[in-house]
Nucleic acid binder design. Structure first.
Length: 583
RNA sequence: GCGCCCGUAGCUCAGCUGGAUAGAGUGUCGCCCUCCGAAGGCGAAGGUCGCAGGUUCGAAUCCUGCCGGGCGCGCCA
């Protein structure tokens, strides 16, 4: 049950009845109608702008129209207790306490499924994220995209989309040849050869040593005498496979498991580039032309030459984009065209790419591609993740590959734990830069959202433990049977109202594609709970456990369980495991 | 030069896609532990929402132009 949706339906119903009665014009537009909780709780539980919106078309003063709406609204509503007209024409509604208790009861019944929505209507959505080059381990720069993408997928899934989580493997191109060369060097090293310093231009990392050893174990010294092309294929495939295993291992430790891994190499080999381009050609979107040099930053070796171009400008991009290099091979952009066409032909019209901020310049052209290859049917949103600065006690952690203090994502997970990494990276909008302070993220204080939310969950369990010691067993059935009408304190009602917002928060966060909203909601819910808990210290009658009143105690335990359920549900969206106890 | 993102309390950030007197945390100041975890809570002070226009019943939010910061800008992936 989404109270807010139900109320909007009621208000809309009232407006339609007024329409039928001829008191509102038949063509009145309700698109901008809002029924939302007001910022200030003194304004009631729900406020609507209906009167202000429709005053002009109705030819009435907002307050006069508001009175008519209120009369219609309160006539037969099961939920509305009262309505006031305020300010420029707001209608403030107060709902019966019964409404909130019903929500609490529903939470106890639905458990983790509370908050699940149907905004997605089962439609497929594809979230592509991480997609790091398989040339080495993931580092911190990849962490944010991995978490944001993963949680976006979980969020959309909770909101009713059929989500596919995808990784695009850049296993073609120059960097992969470099990887193969680097691995071959390690292979020779494994055979006992003295290789000295790793030459410039090759990957120096230790992580390739196991690749060399694996090649030795499988092939002995046979590769040395093998013809170059055949050898290169073997070394390359082995390197890519082992790098992907390394990456998947780290992602698994982060709790990220993707459904589909699409290989660039396979897309290239399958002829899908030619197919996609010929499709675009049929649409008249491919032509040969000459581009102007980039303004203000002409490369030294710039030479004007005719190129094969995609008409990206037709879809809002700034310039048309080349799809062939000067040597006749495809540009990376050409494979992007084929890949996004591939996504569309697999049935996805709702696509999300999670990319690093350094790919900002690619956003428009990718969106242009998606429009073009789908005949305008599909759309792509690009979530750009800004930099994460790794800090310790307020000081930047120096990272230099050369000095060997290169921090991998695996190191980070091992150092602070996957739940902390996940949650913390979601406490900011993805497009705002953030600091990740190794010490601060583990601090146990209120300014640490991660801790504060976990604490609330643990505290719920603490209450249950205390109840059991007092001889009260908060079993599922006992909680479901509790008499919630005994929850009548203003603080208790306020908490129930907060819990009633959860489905709405899920839907809003999913629609806006902003996982961080969940973090802030959980923080506020935790705050409400901690406040209520502490009030029980001063006012004994507010304590959850009332030794001489078993019924009231059970009602309050039910409220605690409802809160716990919502927090656990939010943490589940984040892929974070709730804790029953803090250490 | 062009494009994208950002500018909100001293500091770090929210602000529910246009709503009412702009909110948290932190820091400063003042309170609350014989009591379900003080790892917490309550209160005070703190703002020309970068600047200037515009759109309308109403703007931190949308549009335009400036100012300031970050990222990017053919043949790299």
């Amino acid at each position: 049950m989404n109270v807010f949706k139900e109320m909007k339906r009621e208000v809309q119903g009232a407006l339609e009845r007024l329409q039928e009665a001829g008191r509102l014009p038949a063509d009145a537009d309700f698109a901008r109608l809002s029924v939302e909780p007001p910022r200030d709780p003194a304004h009631g539980d729900m406020a609507t702008n209906a009167a202000m919106l429709l005053a002009k078309p109705a030819g009435l003063k907002p307050r006069a129209l508001a009175e008519a709406i209120v009369a219609e609204l309160t006539r037969e509503s099961a939920w509305i207790e009262g309505a006031e007209i305020a300010g420029p024409g707001f209608i403030n509604l107060r709902l019966k306490a019964e409404v909130w208790r019903r929500v609490a009861a529903e939470i106890l019944r639905a458990g983790a499924a509370y908050g699940d929505g149907d905004a997605g209507g089962g439609r497929p959505a594809l979230v592509e994220y991480v997609s790091a080059n398989p040339t080495g381990p993931l580092h911190i720069g990849h962490a944010r995209g991995a978490v944001v993408g993963d949680v976006l997928a979980r969020l959309l899934s909770k909101a009713g989309y059929a989500v596919t989580k995808e990784y695009w493997i850049n296993d073609a191109g120059a960097q992969i040849e470099t990887l193969a060369d680097s691995a071959y060097l390690r292979y020779r090293e494994a055979l006992g050869e003295e290789i000295g310093a790793i030459p410039d231009g090759l990957y120096p990392g230790d992580y390739l040593i196991p690749v060399g050893e694996a090649l030795k174990a499988e092939h002995g010294d046979a590769l040395l005498s093998m013809e170059e092309a055949a050898r290169r294929a073997i070394v390359r495939d082995k390197s890519i496979a082992m790098m992907m295993d390394l990456i998947k291992g780290t992602l698994a430790d982060l709790g990220v498991v993707q459904d589909v891994f699409t290989s660039e190499r396979e897309i290239v080999a399958s002829g899908k580039i030619e197919a996609a381009l010929s499709y675009l050609d049929e649409q008249g979107l491919i032509y040969v032309g000459v581009l102007d040099p980039p303004k203000g930053k002409t490369p030294d070796d710039w030479e004007e030459r005719p190129q094969t171009l995609f008409k990206a400008t037709e879809f809002g991009d700034d310039v048309d984009r080349p799809i062939k290099k000067s040597d006749g091979s495809w540009t990376y952009f050409a494979t992007d065209i084929a890949y996004h066409r591939e996504k569309y032909t697999r049935g996805f019209t709702h696509m999300i790419d999670v990319l690093g901020a350094d790919h900002g310049g690619y956003m428009k052209r990718l969106q242009a591609v998606v429009k073009a290859v789908s005949g305008g049917e599909a759309s792509l949103t690009v979530k750009l993740c800004q930099m994460v600065r790794l800090m310790d006690r307020g000081q930047p952690v120096k990272m230099s590959k050369r000095a060997g203090s290169f921090v991998t994502l695996q190191d980070l997970i091992d150092a602070v734990g996957r739940d902390v990494v996940r949650f913390y990276l979601l406490t900011r909008k993805n497009d705002a830069p953030m600091d990740f302070d190794l010490t601060a993220v583990k601090e146990q204080s209120r300014d640490n959202m991660v801790f504060y939310v976990h604490y609330a969950h643990a505290r719920c369990h603490s209450v249950f433990r205390q109840a059991r010691e007092a001889g009260i067993e908060p079993s599922v059935s006992a909680l479901q049977d509790a008499d919630l009408t005994l929850l009548d304190a203003p603080e208790e009602l306020a908490l129930m109202k907060r819990l009633a917002e959860w489905p709405r928060q899920v839907e809003a966060a999913a629609e806006a594609e902003e996982p961080h909203r969940i973090a802030y909601y959980l923080y506020e819910a935790a705050s409400d709970f901690h406040a209520l808990w502490t009030k029980g210290k001063e006012d004994v009658t507010l304590r959850f456990i009332q030794a001489d009143d078993a019924a009231r105690t059970m009602a309050r335990l039910a409220l605690v369980e409802a809160l716990r359920t919502v927090i656990a549900s939010g943490l589940d969206v984040f892929g974070v495991t709730p804790v029953d106890e803090l250490h």
